[in-house]
Design a protein around this nucleic acid. Structure first.
Lengths: 240, 240
DNA sequence: GCATGTGAATAGATTCACAGCG
DNA sequence: CGCTGTGAATCTATTCACATGC
C-alpha cells in the first residue's frame, strides 16, 4: 500500500520520538527492530507504534520487524527533515540565548539564519556565529533567506506584535515560547511551549498524589478552608 | 454541586491558561467574565471553557458569568498553587541558566531552592542568588528543603541517571527538558518539554501546507525520489 | 512461528444544542 | 432574556485481538 493519507495529530507528535530512538538504534548498528523494542525506547506501547507506522505505509516485514534505515528515511521524509529549514529567533533574552546555542536544532536540520531583538542595546552584539540584528530587518531576512519558521522568545507583552510582524513578513510557521496566547491567521501553523504551564500541570498531579497518600498534614488546614469556600461564596485571593 | 471528581487530563492542561487570562482580567479590574470572553483570551471555544470549569464545580452564575476572583482562587487551588513548591534544577548549561533566571516560575510559586551540576568546574559559581552545588548534595537538599519537583536540564546521556537520583532522593514530580525518553516509577509524575520535537512537528505541518499550496518547485524532485523509494526497498539515508 | 497490519471495541475529548436558572 | 451547565452526539485516539504473510 502506498502511504495512506491523513496522519493523525497524535501520531505526528510521536514521530520525532521514534526518529530519535531509531537514530540511536542505527548508531548501535542494528539493522532491524520490532515494534515492541521501538515502543520500549519511545516510552509507548507496541500497538501504538504499529498503528502509527501503519499510517506511513506498510513498511515492516511480518515475522521480522522494521528495517531501521528505511524507517528512518520514511519518518524523516514525512516530517520534512530531508532538507534544511531556515529559522529566525526573535528575542535574545535568557531563553533566546539558550535556543541560539541549542545544538539539537542544527542536528535536525533547523538552521538559524538570524537572531533579532528590539533592544537597540543588544543589536550588534555577537552570539556564536550570529550578530544580533534589529527588528526592522525582519522582513528582509525572511525574504532573502526564505525563512520558514519563526521562533518567538520575547516577553509576553510583545509576543502578539512579533507574531503579526512575522506573519506579515511571510513566515507561515511559528513556535511561541512567550507565556501568552497569540493568534495567527488560519494558514499559519502555530505551536507553543510554555515552561511555567508545564510546572503548573505537574503541580496538579503532585498535589493530587500527596493528597492521595495522606502525606500532607499542612493540607488539612486548606481542606477546611476549601469547605468554607464551598459554603460561602465570597473569597479573597492570595495575590497571584 | 460540590466539586466533581476526576478532572480530565486535557482540562488540567488548560487550567493554567485560564488562570493566566484571569489574572489579566483581574488586573483590568473586571469582576465577572463570560465563558465566551474567557474562551477568546485563552484561545479556545466557549463550550470547552464551560465544560472545563464545570469539572471544578458549578461556579458560574447563569445569565451573568463567572466571578473572576472566585474562579482565580478555585483554579489556583485545584492546581495546588496556593502554596509555594520548592524545586531544584539539575544541569546548569544554557537551558538551566535560562530556567534559573526565568521569572515565570517564581511568579507562580515555584521557588528554586538549589541549582546542581555534575561539572566540578561549575560548582561554586554564583548565579543570581544561588551558588551552584555538587550533585552529591542532591539528597540533602531534597530532604532539608522538602523539594517536591525536580527539573532536569542536563544533556540527554545523563538524564536517566539524574532522574534515578532525583527519585532516590525522594522527589515525586519531574519536569524533563533533556531530549530523551526517561522512565520513572509509577508513583512519580513526569512531564517533558522537548524543544527540537516541537520544531519537528511544526516542520511536518509546514511542509504539508507548502505541498498543499503547490509552492514547492524543489519538492518535485523529492516526490520522484519518494516514488522510487516506494518501489525499491533499499535506501541510503542522508546522515541524521 | 512470529511480528506486522488492521478492523472492531473501547476510552477519551470536543462540540452541539438546549434545558435550567438567575 | 442571557449565559451557564450538561446530557447526547460526534470526533479522535488508544487498545485489543487476530488474520495475514513472510
Amino acid at each position: 500500500m502506498p502511504a495512506g493519507r491523513h496522519i493523525p495529530e497524535a501520531t505526528v507528535a510521536r514521530l520525532p520520538v521514534y526518529l530519535r530512538a531509531l537514530v540511536e538504534v542505527a548508531d548501535a548498528k542494528m539493522s532491524t527492530i520490532s515494534s515492541e523494542r521501538l515502543a520500549d525506547l519511545a516510552g509507548v506501547n507496541a500497538a501504538k507504534v504499529r498503528k502509527d507506522l501503519s499510517y506511513l505505509g506498510s513498511y515492516g516485514t511480518r515475522g521480522v520487524g522494521y528495517d531501521v534505515e528505511f524507517l528512518l528515511y520514511q519518518i524523516s521524509r514525512q516530517l520534512g527533515l530531508t532538507r534544511d529549514w531556515p529559522i529566525v529567533i526573535v528575542g535574545v533574552g535568557n531563553l533566546g540565548h539558550a535556543l541560539a546555542n541549542y545544538r539539537g536544532f542544527a542536528a535536525r536540520g533547523f538552521r538559524i539564519v538570524a537572531l533579532l531583538d528590539a533592544d537597540p542595546g543588544k543589536v550588534g552584539e555577537q552570539l556564536g556565529e550570529h550578530c544580533i540584528r534589529a527588528m526592522a530587518e525582519l522582513s528582509d531576512v525572511v525574504q532573502e533567506e526564505k525563512v520558514a519558521i519563526g521562533v518567538i522568545a520575547t516577553p509576553a507583552v510583545v509576543a502578539q506584535e512579533v507574531a503579526d510582524r512575522l506573519v506579515e513578513a511571510g513566515v507561515t510557521s511559528i513556535l511561541n515560547f512567550a507565556p501568552t496566547v497569540i493568534s495567527v491567521p488560519a494558514h499559519v501553523a502555530l505551536r507553543k511551549v510554555d515552561l511555567s504551564i508545564e510546572l503548573q500541570i505537574l503541580s496538579f498531579y503532585h498535589q493530587r498524589a500527596v493528597l492521595a497518600n495522606g502525606l500532607a498534614p499542612d493540607l488539612v488546614t486548606d481542606l477546611a478552608t476549601d469547605l468554607a469556600t464551598d459554603l460561602a461564596t465570597d473569597v479573597s485571593l492570595p495575590a497571584g
